[in-house]
């Protein structure tokens, strides 16, 4: 299941969803994220959906559930890069992504995430590490 790459930078997992996911692939990604959180030190998730042209109620729910699972494991989630059309459609659909932080892009998402997980300025972990393949 190599459809989604999960990158770990410091205490943050970055998950850029690059392809339209069907059910089993989406559920697999959720499991991969959760088992990754188990690794020591992961306190933040950044899910990048900027490549997604459609976020339906199934995927919206999956993101919300993943964030809720992460939260009970002590991990905060920021969803970044919702396309304007997708944002409009989600609201009309009735999905409000409650309980999930959102940001415009990866950069502001990382700032927000570092703030909510309490990394002090100066300690912000944006130094590319071995796992960073360029976001």
């Amino acid at each position: 299941m190599a459809e989604v790459t999960i990158m770990k930078i410091g205490s943050i997992l970055i998950i850029p969803i690059q392809t339209e996911l069907h059910n089993s692939a989406a559920v697999q990604v959720q499991q991969d994220i959760i088992s990754n959180i188990e690794q020591a030190g992961v306190r933040g998730l950044l899910i990048d959906v900027s490549k997604l042209a459609v976020v339906d109620s199934f995927l919206g729910r999956l993101i919300g559930d993943t964030a809720a699972m992460a939260r009970v494991m002590g991990c905060q989630t920021v969803v970044v890069g919702l396309q304007p059309e997708v944002a409009i459609t989600l609201m009309e659909l009735g999905m409000h992504l409650e309980g999930v932080y959102t940001a415009l892009n990866t950069e502001t998402g990382l700032e927000l995430l570092n703030k909510v997980i309490g990394n002090r300025a100066g300690e912000i972990e944006t130094e590319p590490s071995a796992g960073d393949e360029g976001v």
Binding site: V54, Q83, I88, T89
Partner: peptide, 8 residues
Amino acid sequence: VDQTRIAT
């Protein structure tokens, strides 16, 4: 926007 509404 309509394309996304319809696809969704």
